[in-house]
Amino acid sequence: MSSKSRFIISTLAFGYAFLYLPLLLVVLYSFNDSSIATIWGGFSTRWYGELLQNDLILDAALLSLKVAVTSATAATLFGTMAGLALARFGRFKGRTLFSGMISSPMVMPEVITGLSLLLLFVTLQQFTGWPGQRGFSTITIAHTTFSMAYVAIIVQSRLLGMDESLEEAAMDLGGKPLRVVFDITLPLIAPAMVAGWLLSFTLSLDDLVIASFVSGPGSTTLPMYIFSKVKLGVSPDINALATLIIVAVSTGVALAWLIMRRSARP
């Protein structure tokens, strides 16, 4: 083995260790009996129990899930339409502005997106009285806006990689355009839509900064709650919560991977 590949392999090992060791330690310390989070005091599951008794966490988690499901669904709907328009409608007036608006929310720093949306809601309220209270609806709108960009890009690139003559063939055989969308296009981009939905769901669950801007008093999402706790330092019940999330996500991703691998093989 050459010195170069040894270098590559050790960098890979270091890189993966860097990515995963901190997570492993969080999992480990979630079973720590001591209430001083960094000192090992023996094995215990008591933090998990406390987690389930904590109404604040449960409320925040519920709000986050509601926002994530709603915004992911709306984002998939709008994003799919936008991806279709970009990949299949040819040239239309305002296309440059449209594709610019699609790709910008992804690269915009969160503080700017959050601030700008809050200012919009405040202005809207001044003139129309809506939204009277910021919370579920405003967070959902904010999350939909940046998630739909991801969905649109995923759907668009799936469509660009797809043979356009499939849709033409359906039209040639008598399918009217709207019919063809349902017969051919949607079934074929369904995997992209599912991927887009899952990504939107995760992004929404993950967001702290934008939600902090656009939520009002009384509506706290899970990341907002966690942030308010960890600001003060390491805390054992957050370790337990993190472990639950890590386990859930890893299982989900591993399952998805296995299913995809199986279906890829004929």
């Binding site: 043979d163 499939l166 039209m171 399918g175 079934p187 074929l188």
Partner: peptide, 20 residues
């Protein structure tokens, strides 16, 4: 006339067989 109204059908270069 639209493609779906013409008494004409086409065999595509890629064959465009619907994969699903």
């Amino acid at each position: 006339q639209a493609p779906y109204d013409r008494p004409v059908n086409m065999m595509f270069q890629s064959y465009a067989i619907f994969p699903h």
